[in-house]
């Protein structure tokens, strides 16, 4: 099968991040092509969140760089960083909706504060984005505290796509949701890529999510990429670390603190 390879959208080169003497990311090289869906797997505390936050610039890397369309986006001044954010969408693990604002104000937040669009138009866009994630206009004027966990996630998704971003980041999108809601969110992530042409980067420890949304998979272990490959190859990766992870085996190269392996 031959397909024309799409150009590289996002790339990290030798990306490292440490907090004090604790090294979390250890020289990572990752490539995501345009319209690809990269899923970075990793156990708790493997540095997944740090990776995604370092890529978007919420954290400063200790060394190495991040490239978007070939341009170095590592050391930007505030203004360029803000401009860059218009090309990114970010879904936080807990949604991170602003408690003091209504649903529509949350969704249109970027547009109101950066594009200075009128309230009526912002509301209309919010309604439109809300319908993409499958919610009706009845929730527009509710506050985040009045929403269920799954609805919060969907509103947060609507906010992440409010500005039609080129690259969307998902931090543990399905954690803490029931099995049905998990599929709803996974399908939406796949939809953003398939229908809107977005490039997506997802970090998760949920194998089911991988099957629905990933085109490319990477496993983060001890601050390094232990394995990377296509999503169809995950069950015959030939990599001991990856194999242990997706089958959830207690014994193997990934050591769990306080758990003794059986012989």
């Amino acid at each position: 099968m031959t397909t024309t390879r799409k150009k590289i959208k996002l790339e990290t080169k030798n990306l490292s991040k440490s907090f004090g003497s604790k090294v979390v990311l250890h020289g990572l090289d990752l490539k995501v092509r345009e319209n690809e869906s990269l899923v970075v797997l990793g156990g708790s505390g493997s540095g997944k969140s740090v990776l995604i936050k370092t890529i978007v610039g919420l954290l400063k890397p200790s060394s190495g760089k991040v490239l978007l369309d070939g341009d170095n986006i590592t050391d930007l001044d505030n203004k360029s960083r803000n401009n860059l954010m218009s090309r990114f969408g970010f879904l936080f693990q807990g949604g991170a909706l602003f408690d003091s604002l209504t649903v529509w104000e949350n969704i249109a937040f970027y547009l109101i504060h950066n594009k200075y669009i009128e309230e009526a138009e912002a509301r209309k866009i919010a309604e439109e984005k809300l319908s993409i994630v499958g919610l009706g206009k009845g929730v527009l004027d509710l506050f985040p505290s009045e929403l269920s966990g799954g609805m919060k996630k969907r509103v947060a998704l609507a906010r992440a796509i409010a500005n039609d971003p080129e690259v969307i980041f998902f931090d543990e999108p399905t954690t803490g949701l029931d099995p049905i809601m998990k599929n709803v969110i996974s399908d939406l992530i796949a939809k953003f890529r398939n229908e809107f042409g977005a490039t997506t980067v997802t970090i998760t420890h949920d194998i089911d999510t991988v099957k629905t949304i990933a085109t490319k998979v990477a496993l983060l272990h001890k601050g390094k990429i232990a394995w990377t490959g296509k999503s169809k190859d995950i069950y015959d990766s030939g990599n001991k670390i990856f194999d242990q992870f997706i089958h959830g085996r207690v014994s193997g190269p990934i050591k769990v603190e306080g758990v003794h392996e059986k012989d």
Binding site: K53, L58, M85, F92, G94, A96, F98, D99, R159
Partner: peptide, 22 residues
Amino acid sequence: ATMKVSEQLDALRTLAVNPFRY
């Protein structure tokens, strides 16, 4: 502090709004 713990400060920055100013 609650906004920080629930990543709302980070969310502000991803929405191109400086938390200091806002």
